[in-house]
């Protein structure tokens, strides 16, 4: 079972590295969306520092959501998913491998780039550190919950808009706690409460989301 998990993980990563746009596009999207806000609102330092945590997190959320399509779409179209369904390994383990790969491809680059965006939004060093920790805890949750939504809409022709309708309400707790943690650390307050919540939510979705996603995938592939 471990072998199946790691083989699938390696395969997905290799596929992603062959199509580099899968890695780069969500990252570019993330950077561009954050750039729009100073242009649209104001380049003033104080204003940006105040709204920066929220903006960076909303951008990360949208980037994660828009990248979900790559999670199942191509495997659905060429029939790989059906073979996974028929394989002797539990579907939830295979899906977890795909989710981990998806996070490494889309979530991880965002974390690497976040200090840069934190700097241009005039966040303090502490806040940037917190931003990275919240992204590290939060973006896997986005991939996990997103997998459920994606599994529900994968068989539909125009599922993109629907996916956002299904998934975004479920992303709200992550957004609240993460951007609040970054804002609090800007103000020099303790952030352990928010981080504990994010960690708990991560563990919770790590245990339940693959099961729910595999149930949803079974319905979609019928």
């Amino acid at each position: 079972m471990y072998k199946a998990f790691f083989n699938l993980l390696k395969r997905d990563l290799r596929l992603a590295f062959r199509h580099k746009s899968e890695i780069l596009n969500p990252l570019f999207f993330f950077v561009i969306v954050v750039t729009l806000f100073p242009l649209g609102i104001s380049p003033e330092k104080q204003m940006l520092a105040e709204i920066g945590p929220g903006i960076i997190w909303v951008a990360a959320l949208l980037a994660a959501m828009l990248s979900l399509d790559s999670l199942f779409r191509s495997d659905f179209e060429d029939g790989t998913l059906e073979l996974m369904l028929l394989s002797e390994y539990p579907l939830s383990v295979l899906i977890l491998a795909k989710i981990v790969a998806h996070w490494l491809i889309t979530g991880f680059p965002i974390i690497i780039f976040s200090p840069l965006l934190g700097t241009v939004m005039f966040l303090s060093n502490d806040a940037i550190e917190t931003l990275m920790i919240t992204l590290l805890l939060g973006t896997p949750i986005l991939s996990l919950i997103g997998a459920i939504g994606m599994a529900l809409v994968v068989a539909l022709k125009r599922g993109g808009m629907l996916l956002s309708l299904l998934v975004l309400p479920l992303y709200i707790p992550v957004l609240i706690f993460s951007s609040n943690a970054v804002g609090s650390s800007m103000a020099g307050l303790s952030i352990s409460g928010q981080l504990y919540f994010l960690a708990a939510f991560l563990l919770f979705s790590l245990t339940l989301a693959p099961v729910a996603a595999s149930a949803a995938l079974r319905v979609s592939l019928e």
Partner: peptide, 26 residues
Amino acid sequence: AAARACAILAIVGVINIPIIHYSVEW
């Protein structure tokens, strides 16, 4: 298929409602 997909969505939603509610309250 729609009914089964919706059932899964409703269950996922109902698990999330208390989490959403308390995070919003907080």
